[in-house]
Amino acid sequence: MTEEDHQDSLSTETETSSAVPDGEIMYEVPVSRSRGQTVLHPNRDQYVETIEKLSQDGFKVCIDVTAVDYLENPERDIPCSISPERFEVVINLLSHSKKERLRLRIQVPESDPVIDSIFDYYPGSEALEREVYDLFGIKFEGHPDLTRILLPENWHGHPLRKDYDVGSIPVQFKEAPGAG
């Protein structure tokens, strides 16, 4: 099935079922385009179903799982049916047969930073999800071994959150103010 076919077959369905999504629909979820790249915006609760569909549709490889903290920059271009939250989990999928990439952006609220793991569909997401957990504090439900991966286990905080300080110290100079 090509991309167009999907849009044709799915758009008729969604027009009747859901509440006025803007623009395109693929795999029953709203779509946006960023610099020509296709981005799906599934709901946090149902995104695993989307993943399942995608994995059956040739997107055999999960290339990347990461997250973005939109604390300082709440505006972003997402379809208006999706309400922006502080965190966004970004999943990159690749289809070798179609030579295509797809990106999923899933909104995760700050109050409840939990999302389902996609380990059962893509075992390769294990380390990637651990990294997101480590650096952003987003928990993945159903992950077999959700522990810190990059930082020591007794580390406090999640450094890639925007409210986490960079932690830089002043550079040593001889005549700069404060230099000894």
Binding site: V171, K174, A176
Partner: peptide, 9 residues
Amino acid sequence: FIYEINYLR
């Protein structure tokens, strides 16, 4: 007036 380079950085 002042010019310093820290070569350890």
